[in-house]
Design a protein around this nucleic acid. Structure first.
Lengths: 374, 374
DNA sequence: TACCCTCATGAAATCGATTACATGGAGGAC
DNA sequence: GTCCTCCATGTAATCGATTTCATGAGGGTA
């Protein structure tokens, strides 16, 4: 493979000049420049980013560690991160923690060895010694989606409190009283926050939530299914089950379908996270939609701010309730022959403040910014 | 950041010795080894993979270029590739071509600059000059899912011919005659092969497929929706529409739902690609399932074979028909109170040879191997 | 013509690891 | 006691780029 030295020889110049051409230095004659370009194409020269990085101490690469690559929320997030990074000329290396702290740490180590310029982490557990070391070491680091307490690391995440409050109101308005919540692990900030928000909203709204109605899953399909089964087997099962993320909702759908129960007639269902196919299930699922794209791009922006030596603020974006039919929204029996059978589209904010959106595509929420982490 | 030189000083040895410890060389005293380890932890030493790669000419990194990161088929594929690579001690850098040849080439260039040890590419278009150069240059390269003609590059892909034949039989058995196909671009091997397989199967089975029933989409939701609309607007619309991939099926569902048509009563639907949520749509979608995990891990294995200097064979794995309800399978009107409302689970191969699988989870198919590409 | 300034270019050090080769001490054989 | 061997360790070259500093040609001015 051709090296810069070969290009220099072919063009009859020094390696320094070739390097200047590579880096668009202004102090190169137009004539020399074109001779160098000619040599590069003649030799099929591909600059060696490894050598460049060794010298410049920069890889123009960002590391992203997500919780679970099979979770569409994280893949959407990853896509947004990639988009933002590419626009800024960065490559992204993705690590899949598979919701395991050891695997998360494995990727942190690998990415540090690879000398990524900065890290975006969706932390999978509580503070590990390695994460703490990275944070204290002052390495460019941003938490995404989830945060860790006690570290001075900016974070970019969504806040579902208001959306959950609206969901509670929606359920109450439909006449439901007994609502269960299957949350995520208490070791994750998202798990804790959603539980707290749900309990608060339930109390405010007057929903009945006995202790056995609050279960802790692991944000994966299996636990959603198992815990749904447990709830359905209670002497007095809930009228509605609210799932803490889209994978557990998938598991819940499996369990409900397996039992031959009808939604929302026999059991109502709602989910945190909105995914494209929620509008195609039987029936479409009422969900809380996170501004995934804005989260991903926002996190890249914050990280690039740190890399650029600018001040980095944490970002909190609101999540939105998307009402569909899975909690008992009226479903017309006769469909009009010519078109929509539900509320028409086009950002219709209903009087009680939530969004009725049969198609599941989002709008751009406004950002709430604050300094550092709690 | 601590360098190998600092560790050497701290441990009172030379850098060569530290390097030997890093690389598990046997010729280091146990006592020296532990002194070096102590120094490394004391200094929080993280080896610099950039410097190592420059010297060893190996990055232990594989490049993967997928067609579209929003397509669950490709994200599943990516996950399988990552799993396989991690087990072998490799990191994967993913590039998202977004189904655009220029973006694909952009990532090829970037990955070459990063000196990945090998490339896995799901080619997004016909042979570009860059791809040809890479192939001719003898760089470790494997095509995944899609292939390109005329290049001596091994490929790992699924063959849907038999599954499509079974789908045709299934449709015929249900009494359908007029079946339309929305294919992928003719520039992609998968688009061409699926069209050819469908036309062959239709002819064999006695389905009516006038030219206006065969449309060419781009494997993305938008085209699935638009082309479904076009088919439904025909003077004599088809009884069933078969979509060439899961994203176009999503678009078709959107269009059908928008028009208030019922599936399968008003229009039947089937899809190439199976995704987890197809069993939760209204109604569950009959689909052709590709052995995604085996494809991804198989491709890594082939690439590692090339890297290890072993002979590399192309791999072709069969796809499977998964019958659900969207083409007219009988749906019970009364559900039993205690459980399943459809065919029971457990790998039931029905007499006519296809799999009836309400849950959408797969089995391991047998591999068909052959030398090189066509 | 002499002097100085500008600017394009080149020579060589450098980044942090690996590794071929050199070295020296311990131990065994005679 | 001498010599040879083996083996743990050290010295220094190397990978391919960037970058600092030196250099010399060319041009403008007095």
């Amino acid at each position: 493979m051709a090296r810069i030295k070969d290009v220099a020889a072919q063009a009859g110049v020094s390696v320094a000049t070739v390097s200047r051409v590579l880096n668009d230095s202004p102090s190169v004659t137009e004539e020399t420049r074109s001779r160098v370009y000619a040599a590069m194409t003649a030799l099929n020269y591909v600059p060696n980013a490894v050598a460049r990085s060794l010298r410049t101490e920069a890889t123009r690469t960002l590391g992203l560690i997500i919780g679970d690559i099979l979770n569409p929320f994280f893949t959407e997030l990853a896509r947004a991160v990639e988009d933002g990074a590419r626009e800024a000329g960065y490559t992204v290396v993705i690590g899949n923690a598979d919701e395991r702290a050891d695997q998360q740490d494995h990727y942190v180590r690998t990415l540090l060895e690879q000398r990524v310029d900065g890290l975006l982490i969706c932390p999978t557990a509580e503070v590990t010694p390695l994460i703490e070391e990275v944070a204290r070491g002052g390495r460019p680091l941003v938490f995404l989606d989830r945060t860790l307490p006690g570290l001075d690391v900016p974070s970019v995440r969504a806040d579902g409190t208001e959306a959950i409050r609206r969901l509670a109101g929606h359920l109450r308005a439909l006449g439901h009283r007994r609502v269960a919540f299957i949350s995520g692990p208490g070791t994750l900030s998202t798990g804790r926050e959603r539980t707290r928000a749900f309990l608060m909203a339930a109390a405010e709204t007057g929903l009945e939530v006995p202790p056995e109605y609050v279960r802790v899953g692991d944000f994966r399909a299996g636990s959603g299914q198992a815990l749904t089964a447990a709830l359905l087997d209670l002497p007095e099962p809930p009228e509605v089950i609210f799932l803490g993320d889209n994978l557990m909702a998938l598991g819940a759908l499996d369990e409900i379908r397996k039992r031959g129960l009808r939604i929302p007639g026999d059991i109502g269902l709602a989910s945190f996270d909105d995914v494209p196919w929620f509008s195609h299930t039987d029936p479409p699922v009422t969900a809380i939609s996170q501004p995934t794209a804005e989260l991903g791009r926002g996190a890249v922006r914050v990280l690039l701010d740190i890399l650029g030596g600018r001040r980095a603020d944490s970002v909190v974006l609101p999540a939105h309730l998307v009402v569909r039919e899975s909690c008992g929204e009226a479903r017309p029996h006769a469909r009009p022959p010519d078109g929509h059978d539900r509320t028409p589209d086009g950002h219709p904010d209903t009087p009680d403040g939530h969004e009725v959106r049969p198609d599941g595509h989002g709008d751009t929420p406004d950002a709430v910014v604050g300094r550092g982490t709690a």
